[in-house]
Amino acid sequence: MRLVRYLLALAAVALVHIAGVRLSPIVPLLVDPILVLILYHSLESPRGWDIVGASVAGLVHDALTGGVYGQLGLVDTVTAYVCSRSRQHLVLLRSWRLGLFFSLLALLQQALLAAVRFLLLDGVEIMPWWSVAAKMVTTGVLGAMTIAVGGGLARRAKRRRREHRRKPTLGTSR
C-alpha cells in the first residue's frame, strides 16, 4: 500500500514537473517538486524506504531531464540519506524550521549535483546561483506546506480510526 501511494505521488509530481516545463522552460530552474516529494518521503517513511524511494524518484527525474543518466539518482539518494539521518538529531516543530531544513537540503542537493557534474562528468555546466537560490526558497516553502498539510491529514485519519475502534458494534457484549 505504501509503495502504491508513493508511486502515485511520484507520478503526480512528475506530472507537475512536466506541466511546469510546458508552461515555461524556466520553471524547472526555479522549483523542483520531485525533490520536495523525496524529502517529505524521507521524513515520513520508515528506514530503508526513504532512500529506495529517493533512488527511484531520482531515476525518474533523470529520465525526464537531460545529461548522464543516474546523476540525479545518485544525488537524490545521498540527499534523502542525509535527510533521514538528520531527522533523528533535529527537533522540527515549527514550520519555519521545517522550511529552513528543506532549503538547506535543497542547497545540499544542488551542491552534490554540482560536485558530481564537476568531478565525475567533466565539462558539464554548473547551475546558475539564482536557480540554486530559487530552488532553496521554493523547496523550503513547499516542504513546510507539504508537512503541514500531510500532518493534518494524517492526524485526521488517525482520529477517525480511533473513533471507529471505540464505536460499539452489534453483537458485542457490554
Binding site: R47, G48, I51, V52, S55, G58, L59, V68, Y69, G70, Q71, G73, L74, T77, V78, Y81, S84, L120
Partner: peptide
C-alpha cells in the same frame, strides 16, 4: 540502513558509468 545506502550509491554509480 547504512548498508542499503552504500549499495544504492554503488548501483547509481554503476548506472552512471555504464551509461
Amino acid at each position: 540502513h547504512h548498508g542499503l545506502f552504500v549499495l544504492l550509491v554503488l548501483v547509481q554509480l554503476l548506472i552512471m558509468t555504464g551509461h
